[in-house]
Design a protein around this nucleic acid. Structure first.
Length: 349
DNA sequence: AAAACATGCTCAT
DNA sequence: TGAGCCTGTTTTA
């Protein structure tokens, strides 16, 4: 259930509440017993996310790499710091207190108070019994983080972690400052336009740009009004650059919101409604057969890169190509620009 | 009760 | 391109 935004939130939560402390590391399920034993008792030195990869660096230099895959999730219990400054701060109102478990991996949601929710959790013994198949439990005396269903969970040395990083494209959430962001954007544009592969596939390729998943892919392409089947090579430079800046904006929103809401047309009230109602969140994702919110044409779904890809066959166009010039000369980029393509650049909010 | 499905990725062919 | 893996929820029989 996680795309990049989720992993960044997890990294941040772990940073706030577990970094700098010695951790009790166990594998209640048993499938990570050896790794847990190796890490148990070490101080967690750093927590960071790149794309969908989570890296937890321990004092010894050991790095726990976690990838949630399609089904992974973290459950948090106990004392938790508010993730976003200014957020309704249950924890900042005086003494630390217990909180409901928050699942990070799909939409974060609060359990109903009457069954296993707030009241029950408050009076539940701490640490709580593991729920389901818990691969790893990271615990301080106050906070517990349970990892379930990851596709990757392994201990690496620093070189191993570096090797994983080297295979990832830029992630806007890891970049600080305009210069870094601009340079990364140029690199992403280059990687997108270097290949003849469909742009819908390239956006899912973590070595092109990191952290985009199936929902973000669909929405980025819709917001750019770009046909997913367009070869990367034929994506106008401006459009490729817009995909990058839009991704940066959507990711930042996703990290702040804890869920993917990608419609910039919503009023604040509607946006609030969309938090509770998944059918309101997206332009095209998951809406096969339903009318496009812009033009009314039924949304189309088809497989691309082994995943369902949703698009509006009318709003999302293939840009005009300049096939004759491309094969012969290396283009003189200034003269023939994107000129007449009537692409609406929908800026987020 | 069983099957289908899901915001991912790797490996073999 | 397809199978396999990880786990939980929703839909179908």
């Amino acid at each position: 259930m996680p795309e990049g935004h989720t992993v960044h939130r997890v990294a941040r939560q772990l940073e706030l509440d577990l970094v700098g402390r010695p951790l009790r590391v166990t594998s209640p399920q048993g499938r990570f017993a050896a790794g847990a034993e190796r890490l148990d008792g070490q101080v967690l030195a750093a927590s960071s996310a790149v794309g969908k990869q989570l890296f937890l660096t321990f004092a010894s230099g050991d790095v726990l790499r976690v990838h949630l895959g399609l089904y992974g999730a973290w459950d948090f219990y106990g004392r938790l710091s508010p993730l976003v400054a200014g957020e309704a701060a249950w924890g900042s109102m005086g003494a630390p207190r217990l909180r409901r478990a928050v699942r990070m991996g799909e939409d974060e949601r609060e359990q109903p108070a009457d069954e296993g929710g707030l009241v029950a959790t408050l009076h539940q013994a701490f640490p709580p019994e593991p729920v389901g198949q818990v691969r790893v439990r990271l615990a301080t005396s106050e906070t517990v983080a349970d990892l379930r269903g990851p596709s990757a969970c392994e201990v690496l040395d620093p070189a191993g972690a570096e090797a994983v990083l080297a295979r990832l494209g830029p992630d806007p959430a890891t970049l600080t400052g305009d210069d870094e962001r601009t340079a990364a954007g140029r690199e992403v544009v280059r990687r997108l336009r270097a290949r003849n592969v469909a742009v819908g596939q390239l956006l899912m390729d973590q070595s092109v740009v990191a952290g985009v998943g199936n929902i973000y892919r669909a929405v980025l392409l819709f917001r750019a009004r770009l046909d997913p089947r367009t070869p990367g090579r034929d994506v106008p430079e401006r459009t490729a650059a817009a995909l990058w800046t839009d991704w940066a904006a959507l990711l930042a929103d996703g990290i702040a919101d804890g869920m993917i809401i990608t419609r910039e047309d919503l009023t604040p009230d509607q946006r609030q409604a969309a938090r509770a109602d998944p059918t309101l969140r997206h332009w095209v994702y998951g809406r096969a057969g339903e009318p496009c919110r812009v033009c009314g044409t039924p949304v189309v779904v088809e497989d691309m890169a082994a995943r369902k890809l949703y698009r509006c066959p009318r709003c999302q166009r293939r840009p005009r190509t300049r096939t004759t010039t491309r094969t012969r000369t290396t283009r003189t980029s200034t003269s023939t620009s994107t000129s007449t393509t009537t692409r609406r650049t929908t800026t987020p909010r």
